[in-house]
Design a protein around this nucleic acid. Structure first.
Lengths: 110, 110
DNA sequence: GGGATCGTCAACCAAATGGTTGAATGTCTA
DNA sequence: TAGACATTCAACCATTTGGTTGACGATCCC
């Protein structure tokens, strides 16, 4: 199944893929543009995007020769709900989120 | 770092480990008792528990010859907060989850 | 002390993961 | 039509992962 916890958590376990998701939070992007900040091949990024797609975390739509990547945030809901079962983590603590987003982006390639 | 998103999400990506966490939601357990319902060796479960421990999701304490495993739900907070940044998941609005919370979780962890 | 129990360690294995490179496919544009 | 561009495919490689088995160090109890 596309949105199984297995595939979602596995997809989220990689820092490159989490960085990609954060980038897509800003705007939809073409594959080449997603790959630009990373120091790895386009093929590697293409694979990461496939994993994110199979997990349902993003959707890809081809327009002409450009394939656009777009966040599918709802796919995280299953995983989020599962985790909520272990404690009531405050929903949307923006300060904390921004701190983590920054540390995540710091570890992403410069 | 113990609570890095890498190690937490990777730990959560395995169904055996998620099942272990759910079991520990009920009560603290000895390693042998954790292993009992699974059709794999004790050594395999021991490895899973080590991965959960390194992720900070559980704590293990040895008393005599018995090693007790105990849930550390706070470790999930980082991951939960990170995910919240991608959408306002409101699990308390989900009826099924509310029922789950009422029956399984009387108190919210700090 | 000696045997049962609890749990880990060490060595091993198959499969999955994350990366590479080079060729291939499809599409836009001069 | 010929390139140039966007993306994936295929083959390959090293490392990690998830499992096994058997030996081992503690610990409890008779």
């Amino acid at each position: 199944m596309a949105n199984s916890l297995d595939t979602i958590f596995a997809a989220l376990a990689d820092p490159t893929r989490r960085a990609i998701l954060s980038m897509l939070l800003e705007d939809d992007m073409a594959v080449t543009d997603v790959a630009e900040p990373f120091e790895m091949s386009l093929a590697a990024i293409s694979k990461h995007l496939m994993i994110l797609t199979r997990a349902g975390l993003i959707a890809q739509e081809k327009r002409g020769r450009v394939k656009w990547c777009k966040l599918e945030p709802d796919a995280m809901k299953n995983a989020s709900v599962w985790m909520q079962g272990f404690g009531q983590f405050e929903p949307v603590n923006l300060d904390a989120f921004e701190r983590f987003l920054e540390t995540e982006l710091d570890t992403a390639p410069e």
